[in-house]
Design a protein around this nucleic acid. Structure first.
Lengths: 230, 230
DNA sequence: CAGTGGTCTAGACCACTGG
DNA sequence: CAGTGGTCTAGACCACTGA
């Protein structure tokens, strides 16, 4: 009957913190004591406590014990959306529309982002992501041709460059930057809005083992937002 | 010498996935096999695999085994910054400056956000967060006076409302929305920019056990961005 | 240097679910 | 209904670090 799993204990301890039984900065009983109190093994308590530490609620130090954080670390996890999925989730039909597509030498600021020498050959692609014909987002992407030469032959009218690259190097690492930017002429036209409109923007650079693959800027239509739980 | 901890195994398996040894969709050997291969207990392998599942690299199902995800779930964890910390981290001196402060009946859209009846009494506070005198962000906050009546007496010239509330209800839950918005007259003046400039914006609503405490909109100075690793 | 958390082990039982 | 992952246990050793 008494469910002694780590999730139950985790929740119980969380509630004791939230209720104020253990105030911020206060020390929490050691794992051995808690194990005795809850009638389970220390392993189980340990697991619950490690999860709470991951959540940013407590701070653990060897020898010093476990304390409730003075200022809880607020953190949220965002799933970086795949544009096609966002559009299809809203019930619309997805279609990528290529606005620009050419192979050129890297401009300096892009070469720097991809850690390449000046003048390296890059594939430049500008795509409008359409949902039922309306532009949902505009993507400006540069691909390192040394890392992914085949992209010049990819059927980018059917599959977006992003998904094509994910298939090629699925488990690469990356940087993400969220910001707000002003619509330039191209975006203003695509979104049927004024130049200078505020657009939610994601910058992303991707690499695998020190080989930089691609960098892109994704500008969403006015009014778009990203939602999460704290 | 052979370090058999779960982190080592986690990294090893990650590399086998990234190298393409196990392709997306393919099934991975069971925990027992891997334990034998790496010469450790199943518990350790299990831990490594659970972490990889949290990372979004693999998918695990009882009976069906573990598979490499077809489309890796891209997710990042953002630490929600405390404005004072951001400013102090840049070496500047933090000071909150109150632009507006009054107790009024809730406008409808705010009452809705806080799940309150129309006309409930709220505390409305507009704060400019200054770093060495320059405005870093403008905060527009509404506090449910039924949940936190003492805020009317808080020394908000010294401590920001956010930090005051964190001290009061440290471990509340919340919603977070990231977006881009256009500077209104007040923000344009504060940031010394034009009306309509694109501002990175965080909306946040906080509650504890079904009692809604506060909702706020935080607009950052032009050029601000949030950075994270994928 | 002693006490705390971090981790591993071997074994066990359970829950779920695909064949 | 059998095989997989999910979890718990009891015990052990280690690493770190504050008193």
């Amino acid at each position: 009957m008494s469910t002694l799993n780590h999730q139950t204990i985790r929740k119980a301890i969380r509630e004791r913190i939230e209720s104020g039984e253990w105030l911020p900065g206060a020390i929490i009983p050691g794992e051995v004591d808690l194990a005795a109190e809850y009638g389970c093994s220390r392993t189980t308590v340990n697991r619950a406590m490690q999860n709470l530490a991951d959540d940013g609620l407590i701070e653990r130090k060897r020898r010093a014990g476990t304390r409730v954080k003075e200022i809880p670390t607020r953190q949220t996890t965002f799933k970086i959306p795949i544009v096609r999925h966002e559009i299809e989730a809203s019930g619309a039909r997805y279609r990528p529309h290529i606005l620009e597509r050419k192979t050129i030498k890297a401009p300096n600021h892009i070469a720097a982002r991809l850690h390449l020498k000046k003048g390296a050959k890059l594939f430049h692609l500008v795509t409008a992501h359409l949902g039922d014909g309306r532009v949902h987002a505009v993507e400006d992407r540069w691909v390192n041709l040394a890392a992914a030469p085949d992209i010049v032959n990819a059927p980018l009218n059917e599959i977006s460059a992003n998904e094509w690259l994910i298939r090629k190097v699925p488990y690469s690492s990356g940087d993400v930057i969220f910001s707000a930017s002003a619509a330039a002429a191209r975006e203003a036209e695509a979104f049927e809005t004024k130049i200078g409109s505020a657009l939610f923007t994601i910058d992303r650079t991707t690499w695998l083992d020190n080989v930089y693959i691609t960098t892109m800027t994704l500008r969403y239509r006015p009014g778009y937002n990203l939602h999460s739980r704290l």
